[in-house]
Amino acid sequence: MFCHVEPEQVICIHDVSSIYRVPLLLEDQGIVDYFCHRLNLPIEMRPRKMLTKWKEMSDRSDRLLEQTSIALVGKYTKLSDSYASVIKALEHSALAINYKLEVKYIDSADLEPAALQEEPVKYHEAWQKLCSADGVLVPGGFGVRGTEGKIQAINWARRQKKPFLGVCLGMQLAVCEFARNVLGWADSNSTEFDPETKHPVVIEMPEHNPGQMGGTMRLGKRRTLFKSTSSVLRKLYGDAEYVDERHRHRFEVNPELKHHFEDKGFRFVGQDLEGERMEIIELEDHPYFVGVQYHPEFTSRPIKPSPPYFGLLLAASGKLQNYLQKGCRLSPRDTYSDRSGSSSPDSEISEIKFPSLS
């Protein structure tokens, strides 16, 4: 009455059980019809069909019974928003297999031997969290603090055959861990942390000039070619020959040392177009040990989870081998219906028809 807002323009967004219910709440109140009328948008397609799978996903999120846990080993764990895109990618994957997600946040510094002397309670609590998790994720980051703790977590996941995913720095540290404990190069490191190491398994990109401020990172969408037809990650990507994913890094695996790793079953199954940059690693004789130089969480979407994260959740829940044996198909219980006619609402946006204005 006093702010010149029509009653039909008032939309009630009350508390709901999950954020995925908000679009359904808005659509139920006719917000799309109102916008079409108010903005004179003669759209021929209504979102109800588009939101069919979205509603199924929202319903599923409210009645999940089984649970799987992922240990997120990082250095910014006191503020979970630091890993917001990572957490969402895990959620998307957990929902896709009908599992409730529990994230165990572990400060990587608490896993280091020094923590046992300084703060033994935190040390033992961190290791208890790690050992009780169904899978391990080491995300990206910068700086030397906590890196040795991440390497400890990677070493434990490799030896205990625990599903592992390393993203960006997580992949680089997996290379360092393998070089130290399998190849026997005890001082192996990234030149980011030890410029004088005799075994620089991770190095600065050739075009990176550390003395120049700005524009020193490899950013944006880049193409990665699969070099192996037996790659687990390739199968998870739908047996694709290549993938386009977003990057954000200054350091890379030293390509000159590649053959030392592959001789021991540590495979570089994905490389850039020139074959100079190592983009994807996989470890033979392991349920799921994968590292990617890019950031797959940036392209993860509800109903369309990121394949590397999806593989981690499948492995953590004990479903990966069955999924691969079935030709990368979920069981009927886990599959969303096809009544909406597409794999995700994203793909149907392009189908919205606007009549010609001419």
Score class of each variant (00 low, 15 high):
residue 104 K to L: 13
residue 241 E to Y: 08
residue 145 R to I: 10
residue 216 T to K: 10
residue 349 I to E: 08
residue 237 Y to L: 07
residue 69 S to I: 06
residue 118 E to W: 00
residue 27 E to R: 05
residue 233 L to Y: 11
residue 333 R to D: 08
residue 25 L to A: 15
residue 289 F to Y: 03
residue 3 C to K: 08
residue 217 M to T: 10
residue 136 V to A: 01
residue 61 S to E: 10
residue 258 K to N: 02
residue 213 M to Y: 09
residue 10 V to Q: 14
residue 185 W to D: 03
residue 185 W to P: 06
residue 43 I to G: 00
residue 188 S to P: 14
residue 212 Q to H: 04
residue 123 Y to L: 02
residue 44 E to V: 15
residue 264 K to M: 15
residue 130 L to A: 00
residue 39 L to F: 06
residue 65 L to P: 06
residue 227 K to L: 13
residue 215 G to F: 04
residue 47 P to I: 05
residue 290 V to G: 12
residue 54 W to C: 04
residue 202 V to R: 02
residue 123 Y to E: 02
residue 142 F to C: 00
residue 148 E to P: 00
residue 91 E to L: 13
residue 122 K to S: 03
residue 12 C to F: 14
residue 67 Q to L: 13
residue 38 R to N: 08
residue 228 S to V: 07
residue 60 R to C: 09
residue 43 I to Q: 05
residue 347 S to N: 05
residue 84 A to G: 08
residue 58 S to M: 15
residue 235 K to L: 01
residue 68 T to Q: 09
residue 112 E to H: 03
residue 308 P to H: 11
residue 196 E to L: 04
residue 330 L to G: 11
residue 310 F to R: 12
residue 100 K to S: 11
residue 183 L to C: 15
residue 118 E to C: 04
residue 278 M to F: 04
residue 114 A to K: 11
residue 152 Q to N: 08
residue 140 G to P: 07
residue 276 E to D: 03
residue 77 T to E: 04
residue 350 S to A: 11
residue 175 V to M: 04
residue 117 Q to G: 06
residue 65 L to H: 14
residue 246 R to C: 06
residue 261 F to V: 03
residue 130 L to D: 00
residue 293 Q to D: 02
residue 62 D to Y: 12
residue 123 Y to T: 03
residue 111 L to M: 03
residue 292 V to Q: 10
residue 356 S to Y: 12
residue 221 K to G: 09
residue 39 L to H: 03
residue 257 L to T: 02
residue 14 H to V: 07
residue 155 N to D: 11
residue 68 T to P: 12
residue 303 I to G: 02
residue 136 V to G: 02
residue 17 S to W: 08
residue 105 Y to P: 00
residue 225 L to V: 09
residue 72 L to M: 11
residue 280 I to R: 05
